[in-house]
């Protein structure tokens, strides 16, 4: 029963992440989804993946989101959607219906009794190629991180440059006002 409550809570958090008005809030709700999913994994018996999901999904990815948002800043975008809303609702309903039709009959099958090799053997011997792919992927991730940090190559756009100039002018005016005030005293 507690598993069902956690699952419903996860879906609610996911909806809140999609509908959050600020990007930072969306990132934090997503961290909540990750933490709840890792708790569900733990309750289902997948303890190793639960730990990895908690540290990578709720930790690393959230830090990455907050870091990127703090670099790029929040951006107000008008709320109209690319597709018309009835079409979006219709497609989502069709998608969920198809998932239900194809997945739910599978849940009625019984559980076979299988004796399985230990995790280390499965991980390092049966799925050895996966580990190699993961190493390559991690290198790709490092290159992607350089893409976030690669500030010098990208020119500052007109609007950002104007904003910086306006801020500098405001600061200068405030300094001059303070200096004038000090002179009068």
């Amino acid at each position: 029963m507690s598993l069902l409550i956690l699952i419903v809570l996860t879906i609610i958090f996911a909806v809140l992440a999609i509908h959050a008005s600020r990007l930072l809030n969306a990132a934090l709700w997503l961290a909540g989804v990750s933490a709840l999913v890792s708790l569900i994994f733990y309750l289902m018996g997948a303890t190793q993946v639960a730990v990895i999901e908690l540290s990578v999904g709720a930790g690393l990815v959230t830090i990455l989101f907050v870091f990127a948002i703090s670099i790029a800043g929040e951006n107000e975008i008008e709320t109209t959607t690319v597709l018309p809303k009835p079409l979006i609702w219709g497609l989502t309903a069709l998608y969920v219906a198809l998932l239900g039709i194809y997945l739910l009959p599978a849940s009625l099958a019984g559980v076979p009794a299988v004796v399985e090799a230990p995790l280390a053997e499965v991980l390092w011997e049966t799925r050895a190629l996966d580990m190699l792919v993961q190493v390559v992927l991690i290198f790709c991730g490092v290159l992607g991180l350089l893409g976030i940090l690669g500030e010098s190559q990208a020119p500052i756009t007109g609007t950002l440059a104007d904003e910086m100039i306006a801020r500098r002018e405001r600061e200068l005016a405030a300094m001059q006002q303070r200096a004038a005030g000090a002179g009068e005293d």
Binding site: A46, Q48, V56, G57, S107, E116, V122, L123, D130
Partner: peptide, 17 residues
Amino acid sequence: ANGKMNLSQSLAMTVIV
């Protein structure tokens, strides 16, 4: 459901990465 938790865990790790 299949009783192959270790296999699914190793696949899930790849998906997480």
